[in-house]
Structures are given as C-alpha cells and as structure tokens.
Amino acid sequence: EALLLQRRRVTVRKADAGGLGISIKGGRENKMPILISKIFKGLAADQTEALFVGDAILSVNGEDLSSATHDEAVQVLKKTGKEVVLEVKYMKD
C-alpha cells in the first residue's frame, strides 16, 4: 500500500489507432486533481498494467497538470505523440 502512495512514472506507447485509452475527471474548477476515471480494456494505458482508476495524473511528458482545468488536461493529453510519460500518484478517496 505504501508503494501506491508514491509518485510513479509510467511510459505509455500508443498504438497507431486509438489514443491512451483513458477517461479523466477532476481539474482545478472541481478543486480536484486530474484523475483517471476509466481505463479501456486492451488499449495503451491498460497494456502498461501500471495505471489504475483513481490515479492522479501529475504531469504529462514533463508538463505539470497540478493546477490544470479539465479542458487543459484533455488538450495536453490529446497533443501527445506516440510515447507518453505520465507521472501519477494514487489518490485515496
């Protein structure tokens, strides 16, 4: 459990079709971090076996998301290339 509370760096390699394969919720306007709300089976994020629903995305390719709005986070995630480095931390409810 202590492991979950540490920052983790996960590299996601996207397939030619399909994006990261995650849905996010939260954002500055909700006074919440950007959280992974869904991981789609078989897509890139799922294949890492290292990302979990409830993980907060702290940064994407080094771009800090700690004070991002939901829309800003969506845009940052959309413009990523084939390889995406996510810094995440599991957030307890």
Rank of each mutant, 00 (worst) to 15 (best):
L58P: 02
L77W: 06
I34M: 01
H70C: 12
R13S: 12
I24A: 00
R8K: 02
G18D: 13
R8F: 00
K89N: 07
L3D: 14
R7L: 12
L3W: 07
T11W: 09
K92A: 15
L4Y: 15
I22D: 03
D16E: 15
A17V: 14
D16F: 08
S23L: 13
D46G: 07
Q47M: 15
E49H: 13
H70R: 11
E87W: 06
S37V: 08
E49Y: 09
E1D: 06
V53I: 09
L65F: 06
L35I: 11
V60E: 04
E49Q: 15
T48S: 11
S66C: 10
K14V: 08
V74I: 14
G54K: 02
R8Y: 01
V88L: 06
I34A: 00
I36Q: 01
V88A: 02
N61L: 00
R13H: 15
A50S: 14
R8M: 02
D46T: 05
A2H: 15
A2P: 08
V53P: 09
K25P: 03
R9C: 12
V53D: 05
F40G: 12
I39T: 04
A2N: 15
G54T: 01
V53L: 05
G21Q: 01
V88N: 01
A50F: 05
I34Q: 00
E87T: 08
A56W: 06
L51R: 02
E87L: 06
A56M: 09
R7N: 10
A15C: 06
S23A: 15
G62A: 06
E49F: 08
L51N: 03
D93F: 09
L51I: 08
L86F: 08
V74F: 05
S66L: 09
S37Q: 08
M91C: 12
V60G: 02
D64Y: 04
L35G: 00
N61V: 01
G54D: 08
A2S: 13
G62Y: 04
A15D: 14
M32K: 15
V88I: 05
K14P: 14
S59E: 15
D93P: 12
D71F: 10
K25A: 15
S67L: 12
I57Q: 04
N30S: 12
L3S: 12
L20D: 00
D64T: 07
K14E: 07
K38S: 10
G21R: 03
R8Q: 03
R9W: 10
I34R: 01
D55F: 00
V12I: 15
S59K: 09
L51S: 03
Q47G: 08
M91P: 06
S67D: 12
N61F: 02
I24W: 03
V88T: 03
E72N: 05
V85D: 15
L3G: 11
V53A: 07
G54S: 04
R13K: 14
L43F: 07
A17H: 14
D64N: 09
S67P: 04
L20V: 07
K14H: 11
G21L: 03
G18Y: 10
G27K: 03
E87H: 06
G62F: 03
T11F: 07
K38F: 07
K38H: 13
K14F: 09
E63F: 13
L20W: 06
E87G: 04
L65S: 02
E1K: 15
I34S: 01
M91S: 12
E1L: 07
M91F: 11
D71T: 10
I22L: 10
D64H: 04
G18L: 12
E63I: 15
I24N: 00
G27E: 00
S37Y: 10
R9H: 13
S66K: 09
V10C: 04
M91W: 09
D64M: 05
H70F: 14
K92I: 15
K25V: 14
V88S: 03
L77V: 03
E63H: 14
S59Y: 06
G21V: 03
R9M: 14
V88Y: 03
L65G: 00
L35M: 11
I22V: 08
E63S: 11
S37A: 13
R13E: 11
L20Q: 04
M32L: 07
K89S: 12
A45L: 05
L65C: 07
A45T: 06
G81V: 06
R9S: 13
K25W: 13
D71S: 14
K92S: 14
R8V: 02
M91T: 09
A68D: 00
E72H: 11
R13C: 10
L58D: 04
V10A: 04
V60I: 13
V60F: 04
K14R: 10
A17R: 14
G26H: 00
Y90N: 10
Q47Y: 07
D55H: 01
T69D: 04
E49S: 11
D55G: 03
V12E: 00
D55W: 02
Y90K: 09
S23K: 10
D55T: 02
F52P: 02
S67K: 13
R9N: 11
R13W: 11
E72Q: 14
I39V: 08
N61E: 05
F40T: 15
H70M: 10
A15N: 11
E72F: 07
D93G: 08
A45W: 04
V88K: 02
L3Q: 09
D64F: 03
V10I: 13
G27C: 03
I34W: 00
G27P: 02
D64E: 07
R8S: 02
Q47A: 11
I36C: 00
G27Y: 00
L51A: 04
V12R: 00
E1I: 07
V12N: 02
Y90D: 10
I22C: 02
K38M: 06
A15K: 13
A56K: 05
D46W: 13
D46N: 06
L51E: 02
K25T: 12
S66P: 00
L4V: 14
L35W: 12
H70L: 07
I24V: 10
E1N: 07
E87Y: 07
R7W: 04
L65V: 12
A50H: 08
L3Y: 14
Q47E: 11
